[in-house]
Amino acid sequence: MTIREALKWASSFLKERNLEQPVAEWLLRHYYQANRAKLFMILDEAIELELVTRFEKDLERHAQGEPVQHIIGYEEFYGRRFIVNKHVLIPRPETEELVVAVTELKQKLFQKEKIKLVDVGTGSGAISITLALEDETLDVLAVDISAEALDVAKRNAKELEAQVTFKHGDLLTPLLEESVQVEAVVSNPPYIPLSDAPGLAVHVRDHEPHLALFGGEDGLDLYRRFMEQLPHVLKEQSLVAFEVGVGQAEVVRKMLVSTFPHATTEIKVDINGKERMVFAYGDMRS
């Protein structure tokens, strides 16, 4: 069997089960440690029997609900490889857009000034590590309530040689306890309503940490708690950047307006035209 034939068979296997067909390509690229171009160059080479067996087993694991990222052990984010497992949310492409928006707003508000930024609910460290590597003027802190998630984030920071300070705790509590103030707060908090749980894909519901997925009955619990803590942590001129669920943007923006009446608030759409990012910046006096 050639790699091309294995790919064709696997695509049919996945299609029959209404699963994403690119999973087959991701697995093969992982086995051969090849980018897409390199894989396509060797499509007509024979695939070893041992790899065929592994391929079949991994596809069956995925068909049973295991995310392909857990099978291969990583996900690509902003052109870098991040270790992921059951303790952290798998980074999504939409969150890359949050990183882009934060770097642009930082430049607009602070230019080359060095500022302190905290990523709350860092998970794998995708946001905090990427920001630290992309903008050397950022002094990055990262907080998570899960000690297991922090272990993963620390491993990723070490692998990617990123300078990030990690703190264990609930939302902004570690900063409040140490009387630390920052110029920027970034977060992709849990925002899925509990009522949506039955409708989630099994790969998400049964394999990603519920602590990182669900934000209470309406999905907004964490944003409400942020509004209580943010005024005590932010400096007078600051930036807040949130990722939100579909349909939540205007509600979260109004929370920020109520908390910071002098600030500029803004909603940005993602590449799919959905309102997934909310910002407040400028004069953050409450």
Rank of each mutant, 00 (worst) to 15 (best):
A101S: 14
N188P: 03
I42C: 05
V252S: 05
L220N: 09
I42V: 08
L172I: 07
V246S: 14
E94Y: 02
T103W: 10
F55R: 00
M284R: 07
R54S: 09
K86N: 12
N35C: 12
L117T: 06
Q248N: 12
V118P: 07
L213D: 04
A184N: 08
I47W: 04
T265W: 00
P22L: 08
I192D: 00
K268L: 15
G247Y: 03
A241D: 01
F226P: 09
L175C: 07
Q248E: 12
D170S: 15
I127K: 07
K108L: 12
L220Q: 12
I115M: 02
D196C: 10
S179A: 15
V257T: 14
L172P: 02
G215E: 08
A280I: 05
L59G: 02
M255W: 02
G123T: 10
M255F: 11
S179F: 14
G273C: 03
H70D: 08
L256P: 00
V88M: 01
L59T: 03
V186R: 04
S187N: 06
W26I: 13
T264A: 07
I72R: 01
R80Q: 11
V102S: 02
V84E: 02
K235N: 13
Q181K: 15
H262S: 13
K15G: 07
R4K: 15
R225N: 09
K114Y: 04
E96P: 11
H62F: 02
L14V: 07
A162E: 13
V143S: 13
L89E: 06
R4S: 13
V88C: 04
R285W: 11
T122H: 06
Y191I: 06
K38H: 14
E16F: 13
P190D: 02
K274D: 04
T2W: 09
Q237V: 12
I71A: 00
V23M: 03
A184R: 04
D221W: 10
R54Q: 14
H203N: 14
